[in-house]
């Protein structure tokens, strides 16, 4: 594949405005631009659609209400009534991931969540929040989370390190899952796009049909990964609040 036509070229970070604050590079990049677009889109979507405050919701308003109730139910089912306090956090995480994924599906746009550092940042935010919630709620008892109950002492020597490792791997698996899904989906679309060009007008129809189907799948994945990210955050939060295995 020729240079500049790599399927990974779409993930290139371009510095739009060079900035440097106290020795740290804080340049405004295309990634930053799309983050701003995403939060603007979310805020506009939720506020404009609810502007009418209609008793009988229209199409946009019922979409906004649906997303609200979707996360509210998820939190209620997985965490219980104590989770109500963390609703804005989980809701923001879900909407951010969902809109990053969906806006990334627009051709020539940039998928913020296809960068491991962004997804890792999000996952680390979730991880730190959840751990702090656990520590503030239970204090030292939070450490009992790493000790499985009803297990012989001999096995504990083996199980406690495994529990600790599995706990600290959570942000990594959470971030890599989202990143890998976005990376793979967009790369696959680009690879098949290259096939369409390579086979030109007499043979390109087959990969073109494939791309059409894949695009549908990618929309499903975009939604599903946001759902998975949110529901795993809920499960982690539940662990921190209830501490039981």
């Amino acid at each position: 594949m020729a240079e500049g036509h790599s399927p990974l070229a779409q993930f290139e970070i371009k510095r739009l405005v060079e900035m440097n604050v106290g020795g740290v590079d804080v340049s405004f990049t295309n990634s930053s631009l799309f983050m701003i677009i995403v939060i603007a889109a979310i805020t506009l979507f939720l506020t404009l659609s609810m502007r009418g405050r209609a008793m009988v919701p229209g199409r946009m308003q019922s979409m906004a209400e649906l997303s609200y109730e979707f996360i509210a139910n998820m939190l209620k089912e997985n965490v219980g009534s104590e989770g109500r306090k963390y609703f804005p956090f989980i809701f923001s995480v879900f909407m951010f991931v969902l809109f990053c994924n969906l806006i990334g599906m627009i051709p020539y746009s940039f998928t913020v969540t296809s960068h491991i550092i962004v997804t890792f940042g999000l996952a680390a935010t979730v991880f730190v929040t959840v751990t702090l919630v656990g520590i503030f709620r239970h204090g030292f008892k939070f450490l009992s989370f790493f000790v499985p109950s009803d297990v012989p002492a001999v096995l504990l020597v083996l199980l406690v390190p495994i529990e600790i490792i599995s706990y600290f791997v959570r942000p990594i698996s959470l971030s890599v899952r989202l990143f890998a899904n976005m990376l793979a989906g967009h790369t696959l679309l680009k690879v098949f796009g290259a096939f369409v060009i390579a086979l030109s007008w007499w043979g390109g129809w087959v990969p073109l049909a494939f791309i059409t189907a894949l695009t549908g799948l990618e929309f499903l994945v975009a939604f599903l990964q946001a759902y998975v990210f949110a529901i795993l955050s809920c499960l982690y939060l539940n662990d921190a609040i209830h501490l039981h295995h």
Binding site: I13, S27, T29, I36, V38, S92, H115, I117, G121
Partner: peptide
């Protein structure tokens, strides 16, 4: 080299 700006902007926007 691309990590710090993304993290900073992620924090700001989030």
């Amino acid at each position: 080299a691309d990590f710090p700006p993304q993290l900073v902007w992620l924090a700001i926007s989030f």
